[in-house]
């Protein structure tokens, strides 16, 4: 009986149907189907044979996070079993979050300031690169959640913008 497995890849649900047919696995992803055989090689390493070619497969996990490498491609994912393709809501303050972990080097607005779409709000620096976080739409700065000199996590909200009055 085929298994329904839903992976979360970059917060996007990827439903797979996985069935076993003797030695062979059949995996469907959308319109595509892959038929493959898997054999263990050493801990965490397998061979995957499909379409007459054999690939090395390396896999690791750290808690809920999993990663594998096969055929030159790397996949990081989590597993969200049979949950019907729920998508995490990435909207909300997503456009006002730090794109990566780093250091806040500039806060260019104050609470209560009106902002235009595209206006620079906060500067985050990481790995020698400067990233400017900009307002997605017009509004009023309701709250500033970071200060210059502060270390922020990737995805951390830096400000809240209220709709214009």
């Amino acid at each position: 009986m085929p298994e329904e497995i839903v992976l979360l890849v970059d917060d996007e649900a990827v439903p797979l149907r996985v069935a076993r047919d003797g030695e062979e696995w059949r995996v469907s992803a959308g319109r595509h189907e892959v038929r493959a055989r898997l054999a263990p090689l050493e801990p965490g390493v397998f061979t995957l044979t499909t379409g007459g070619r054999t690939y090395l497969l390396h896999a690791v996990e750290a808690g809920e996070r999993r990663a594998l490498h096969v055929g030159g491609r790397t996949l990081e994912y989590r597993v969200e079993r049979r949950s019907g393709g729920r998508r995490r809501d990435a909207a909300g303050s997503a456009d006002l979050s730090a794109p990566m972990p780093g250091l806040v080097t500039g806060v260019l607005v104050r609470e209560g300031d009106p902002v235009r779409p595209g206006q620079a709000l906060v500067i985050v620096e990481a790995m020698k690169m400067e990233h400017v976080i900009r307002a997605a739409r017009a509004g009023i700065v309701r709250r500033l959640l970071v200060r210059p000199g502060q270390q922020v996590e990737g995805g951390a909200a830096v400000a809240e913008i209220a709709p214009p009055p």
Binding site: V14, W25, A29, L38, L48, V70, G71, T74, L75
Partner: peptide, 29 residues
Amino acid sequence: EPLLALAAAGILEALREAAPPAGAAGPAG
């Protein structure tokens, strides 16, 4: 689309899933 990698992930998870007895609770961590 990393089709081969997705297929590999599916197979590994199916193998993992096959392990616990029916009704076993919790994620297969």
